[in-house]
């Protein structure tokens, strides 16, 4: 249904993907993104509020952040110690020294791709910003499920996870978004066995 006064033009459909390991277990922190085959259909970034990649207990929070290309990201520091956040990724290369109570200006992420974040002081800190081409993306929860509201049409579906192996990284699939559709995305290879745990030590090097 569409009301002209609200200015909406296309009806959004619900598109769900469940990301599963080869054994059929749900995969958390996976990103699914839909890119329309006709890229002229991609709207401009509509939000002016920057997204947030925080540092809490010497970890990036969230572990994986997804934004649309053109969005801004704030890097606050909720720890009482300093961080030195950097990225060497092609999509965005930068470094920021983060002091307590001195938030820097937000950064723009213009180029689609994956931005891997590290901290030069705390080598175990690792986080990701998935810069999507379109506004139609989501991140899986513990059930492995991602729900995207997207207009009807033909899309290419990308599924990404920080610990994916090459065979899965190369996969993409054309999908049609029509009425509510559900898709199971089973990884071909197990994720790298790195454990993403939140056990942190408040007395690690500061």
């Amino acid at each position: 249904m569409c009301f002209a006064v609200l200015g909406c033009s296309v009806q959004a459909e619900r598109f769900s993907v469940t990301v599963l390991s080869p054994e059929g277990n749900p995969v958390e922190h996976a990103v699914a993104a839909l890119v329309p085959l006709d890229k002229s259909l991609i709207p401009e970034v509509s939000t002016s509020t920057p997204a947030v990649m925080d540092q809490i207990d010497r970890q990036f929070s969230p572990y994986v952040l997804a934004i649309q290309a053109g969005e801004w990201v704030n890097f606050p520091n909720s720890d009482s110690i300093k961080h030195h956040v950097y990225s060497f990724s092609e999509a965005k290369s930068f470094q920021l020294r983060l002091y307590k109570d001195k938030p820097p200006e937000p950064l723009a992420f213009e180029k689609p791709g994956v931005v891997a974040l590290g901290c030069n002081i705390h080598d175990w800190m690792i986080g990701y910003i998935y810069v999507a081409e379109s506004p139609w993306f989501g991140i899986s929860d513990t059930s492995g499920e991602i729900t995207i509201e997207a207009p009807q049409g033909e899309y290419q579906l990308h599924v990404w996870h920080p610990l994916m192996k090459p065979a899965d990284l190369a996969r993409e699939q054309n999908v049609t978004v029509a009425t509510s559709s559900q898709l199971a995305w089973t990884l071909q290879e197990a994720l790298h066995s790195l454990t993403h745990d939140h056990l942190t030590d408040e007395f690690d090097e500061y």
């Binding site: 590290g118 175990w124 800190m125 690792i126 790195l194």
Partner: peptide
């Protein structure tokens, strides 16, 4: 000199 495990998808640093 440190080889940070997480940069190499490893649990060992």
């Amino acid at each position: 000199i440190t080889r940070p495990g997480r940069q190499y998808n490893s649990n060992h640093t």
